[in-house]
Write a protein that binds this DNA or RNA. Structure first.
Lengths: 136, 136
DNA sequence: ATTTATGCAAACTATTTGCATTGCC
DNA sequence: GGCAATGCAAATAGTTTGCATAAAT
């Protein structure tokens, strides 16, 4: 089953390539529709899935908000803020050595790994409890 | 205010402490009901949530199967088999050094991290495509 | 001409919530 | 007695699917 090009798939891919951070299917749907590019939610889901299979993007499990999509399939690390729940890319580079070590220790065939750091982002760290209560 | 005890909460906690691996809320529900301990699904969800807040167990995002619960809240690493989708505990120990390093690099307050290795488990690696087709 | 992609609505799965009742402290 | 926990059913959120139509090769 060879894939055909489609207007909607291009829209989704272009959108994904320009985002910062990570987005849910619903966010992709809203953003495209609000920018004058009507697309149905089912099509968004189907294309996010297809683009993941094509290794253009990656579907990742958010620690608290279901699944989100990452603009790249290249393995890298994430920071999760437990206060605002946002997910950020970590500034360091991928350590392939860990895969070799884990293969030796476990006997598994290892493809890659991801590291998720949990903590509090600088923005949230500077907020008072008062500001949290008010949603600022 | 959460009470320390209830019959159902004890059932859920005892069950969690004796499992190997990771279970979904539905699995906890089924297991308890099948072992002659009637409990409702809503209560299972509520108690898994409460036990997570109490740091007795941990809710974790499974890379493909929604959320599952881990018998311990102690940070550790996981191996995910992309063929059978099972999640296993990794044999190595937690490297706290990574948290210090990430704090320095990112300016975040880091609480902990988790590493998820993706690969193929020994059992699946030894299966032929034929066996997969037949579900063995 | 054939096959893949889309939109829509319905179906599903997982999880949460309201509320009346039960059971601890 | 008062507050937390439970069960049940209904509600919600997120995602998938069937099917008729449109678009791409």
């Amino acid at each position: 089953m060879i894939r055909k090009q489609s207007k909607q798939r291009d829209l989704v891919l272009n959108y994904m390539k320009q985002i910062h951070g990570h987005v849910s299917a619903e966010e992709v749907y809203d953003a495209l529709n609000q920018s004058g590019n009507p697309i149905s939610l089912a099509t968004v889901y189907r294309n996010l899935d297809i683009l993941s299979q094509m290794n253009e993007i990656k579907k990742i499990a958010h620690p608290v908000n279901g699944y989100v999509y990452d603009k790249t399939a290249e393995p890298h690390y994430h920071l999760h803020c437990v206060k605002c729940n946002q997910l950020f890319d970590a500034p360091n580079t991928y350590v392939r050595k860990l895969d070799i070590a884990m293969k030796a220790q476990s006997g598994w065939e290892i493809h890659s790994h991801s590291i998720l750091f949990e903590g509090v982002c600088p923005t949230c760290a500077n907020k008072t409890d008062e500001q949290y209560r008010n949603g600022n």
